[in-house]
């Protein structure tokens, strides 16, 4: 710091050619400024990138878990007629419904309104969200009442022997 003030005071004392001097000092100042700037950005990056990756690890892992395309919910074959079972499809909850007519359907169980987990109500044969009273059709997943703006994501269900396989459409 004292160096720069020394330079300045010398310049002031012997200010013969102010035009040249100011040219030199401006370009030097700009050069120093940009070097400092580049280094600062480098340091901020070098410190914040590892921190970001450190914090983001579970997010990345969950994202790769969500990549699953097929799930066999355990004991799903034991779900009785008119009953349902919730299970995890990757990192999201899902609901598997065994209808009275023997048909199966499966949906993403996250309400399209504000993200609560929905529930199959067998007495009314509907999918209901307790948070704001959203109602979905239990066979198509289409919204029927309340605030939900979109249908629930529907999965494909296949039954092979004793196994129920739920997969993305």
């Amino acid at each position: 710091m004292s160096d720069s003030s020394d330079v300045r005071s010398k310049k002031d004392a012997g200010g013969r050619s102010p035009v040249n001097d100011s040219h030199v000092s401006v370009s030097r100042r700009a050069a120093v400024g940009s070097v400092v700037g580049v280094f600062s950005v480098g340091y901020v990056g070098a410190v914040s990138y590892p921190i970001y990756r450190y914090l983001n690890t579970p997010v990345e892992r969950a994202a790769s878990a969500a990549q699953v395309t097929e799930v066999s919910p355990p004991d799903a074959a034991k779900v009785k007629l008119g009953a349902s079972q919730t299970f995890m499809f990757g990192s999201r909850p899902a609901v598997l419904i065994h209808h009275e007519d023997g048909q199966w359907s499966a949906f993403d169980a996250v309400c399209t309104h504000l993200g609560c987990t929905v529930k199959y109500e067998s007495s009314k044969d509907r999918i209901y969200c307790a948070c704001h009273g959203g109602v979905y059709n239990a066979e198509t997943g289409e919204p029927e009442a309340g605030p939900p703006p979109r249908a629930l994501t529907r999965y494909k269900v296949e039954v092979k022997d004793d196994e129920v396989i739920v997969s993305r459409v």
């Binding site: 590892p50 450190y54 983001n56 690890t57």
Partner: peptide, 9 residues
Amino acid sequence: YDIDFGWLI
């Protein structure tokens, strides 16, 4: 060993 950059922190 598992969390990214956890060893560094």
